[in-house]
Simulated assay, not measured.
Amino acid sequence: MPIEIPHLNYNGRIHQIQMGDGAKSIEVGGESCYPFYKFEGNMPNTPRIAMEVYDEAPDDWPEAAIAPFADVLGDPVAWAKKCVESYGAEMICLQLQSTDPNGTNRSAEETAQLVKKVAAAIDVPLVIWGTANPEKDTEVLRAVAEAVQDRRLALGPVEEGNYKKIGATAMAYNHIVIASSPIDINLAKQLNILMSNLGIKESNIIMDPTVSSIGYGIEYAYSVMERIRMAALTQQDEKLQFPLICNIARETWKSKEAKAVEADDPSYGNDGERGITLEAMSATLLLLAGADILIMRHPEAIRLTREMISELS
């Protein structure tokens, strides 16, 4: 007697979003099933990885994270080109650390010109990530959106406190907005509703649920992402049917476990491998929760994660 394997029927579908423009644009989303459950539905686009680049040289990275980029840390344009040409990056995320009012506090105008140079130097999709300071991000991301009109950027994080101003500018130049909410499905849905009411197209919204690394609350982030996908696919909640982007690299590499030096505490093991493993494992968990885009740092962690995506696909 043949065995019939039960299948779950999905009524919803994740919106498919085009990242970037031109020959190297990328489609994300489009799923009609849970992550990698291809026996129950369709997953037309595999998850993608954006390599992060910082707009100023970081001063708090462990040696393992610095080594692959040691020759370009002070030059974001060269850094972005190295990620694409040497490490095969299919997408770049430019982290605007220098705009932080509590740090360098670089002006919006200067930042916009820098982003313009980075955008001109690469032909892969470009994500622009602010500092989560609503006032400064509003000023900076609006200037960036206007300065780089010839590229389709993804701008974030866009929060409830600044979505109107950033959203309006993004709409004017057909950029994507990254709707960011603090690990809460209800807040995530509410922000998506507000953006839709503002007039932002469904094809221009990506969700950032906020994530953490292993050991720092990733199970909570996983649960929220899982609930978002359940509501989107099985409950036909149209306000949650958007691709998910996870800024996991900085959460992983700022942790004590990634930074600790083996000589100071041998029980932690090899510090050159530890951060890489932690980043790859954290990324894999988020893939299983429904991540469509992962923002990652170390080339080896990215290689391991790509292998996992290939195996799961």
Score class of each variant (00 low, 15 high):
residue 188 A to D: 05
residue 200 I to D: 00
residue 69 F to A: 06
residue 45 N to D: 04
residue 165 K to W: 00
residue 287 L to V: 07
residue 254 K to A: 07
residue 64 A to K: 06
residue 142 R to M: 14
residue 102 N to R: 15
residue 111 T to S: 12
residue 44 P to S: 10
residue 273 E to P: 00
residue 268 Y to P: 00
residue 260 A to L: 11
residue 185 I to G: 03
residue 308 M to T: 15
residue 198 L to N: 11
residue 79 W to D: 09
residue 91 M to G: 02
residue 305 T to A: 05
residue 177 V to Q: 03
residue 132 A to D: 04
residue 59 D to G: 15
residue 218 I to F: 12
residue 12 G to K: 09
residue 95 Q to F: 14
residue 188 A to R: 07
residue 114 L to I: 09
residue 36 F to K: 12
residue 287 L to F: 05
residue 293 I to E: 00
residue 190 Q to W: 02
residue 160 E to C: 08
residue 29 G to I: 03
residue 309 I to P: 02
residue 233 L to W: 03
residue 296 M to R: 09
residue 145 A to I: 01
residue 132 A to I: 02
residue 161 G to W: 04
residue 70 A to D: 09
residue 257 E to G: 07
residue 68 P to H: 11
residue 80 A to I: 10
residue 65 A to G: 03
residue 177 V to M: 05
residue 102 N to C: 08
residue 36 F to T: 06
residue 31 E to H: 12
residue 147 A to C: 14
residue 191 L to C: 00
residue 27 E to C: 05
residue 204 N to Y: 09
residue 183 I to D: 03
residue 51 M to H: 12
residue 130 G to C: 05
residue 21 D to G: 05
residue 137 D to Q: 10
residue 74 G to K: 14
residue 8 L to R: 15
residue 259 K to H: 04
residue 279 E to M: 10
residue 21 D to M: 04
residue 256 K to M: 09
residue 168 A to I: 03
residue 135 E to L: 13
residue 172 A to V: 04
residue 169 T to S: 12
residue 94 L to R: 14
residue 211 V to W: 02
residue 48 R to S: 09
residue 279 E to G: 09
residue 109 E to L: 11
residue 80 A to R: 13
residue 157 P to C: 11
residue 140 V to C: 06
residue 40 E to C: 08
residue 244 L to F: 10
residue 193 I to P: 01
residue 25 S to P: 01
residue 106 R to L: 02
residue 283 A to D: 01
residue 100 D to W: 08
residue 222 Y to C: 13
residue 183 I to R: 15
residue 230 M to S: 09
residue 313 S to F: 05
residue 199 G to Q: 08
residue 263 A to V: 11
residue 84 V to K: 10
residue 102 N to D: 10
residue 120 A to Y: 03
residue 292 D to E: 07
residue 141 L to P: 01
residue 229 R to G: 00
residue 293 I to W: 03
residue 288 L to F: 09
residue 65 A to V: 07
residue 263 A to Y: 08
residue 286 L to R: 06
residue 55 D to V: 11
residue 56 E to W: 11
residue 113 Q to V: 15
residue 32 S to W: 02
residue 7 H to G: 00
residue 178 I to G: 02
residue 235 Q to W: 10
residue 150 D to M: 10
residue 99 T to S: 08
residue 180 S to D: 10
residue 297 R to W: 14
residue 141 L to I: 07
residue 227 R to P: 00
residue 310 S to Q: 15
residue 247 N to A: 15
residue 72 V to N: 09
residue 10 Y to W: 06
residue 303 R to H: 14
residue 111 T to I: 09
residue 107 S to M: 01
residue 235 Q to F: 12
residue 22 G to W: 01
residue 259 K to P: 00
residue 302 I to G: 01
residue 218 I to W: 06
residue 294 L to M: 10
residue 184 D to E: 10
residue 24 K to D: 05
residue 109 E to S: 14
residue 93 C to G: 01
residue 56 E to F: 13
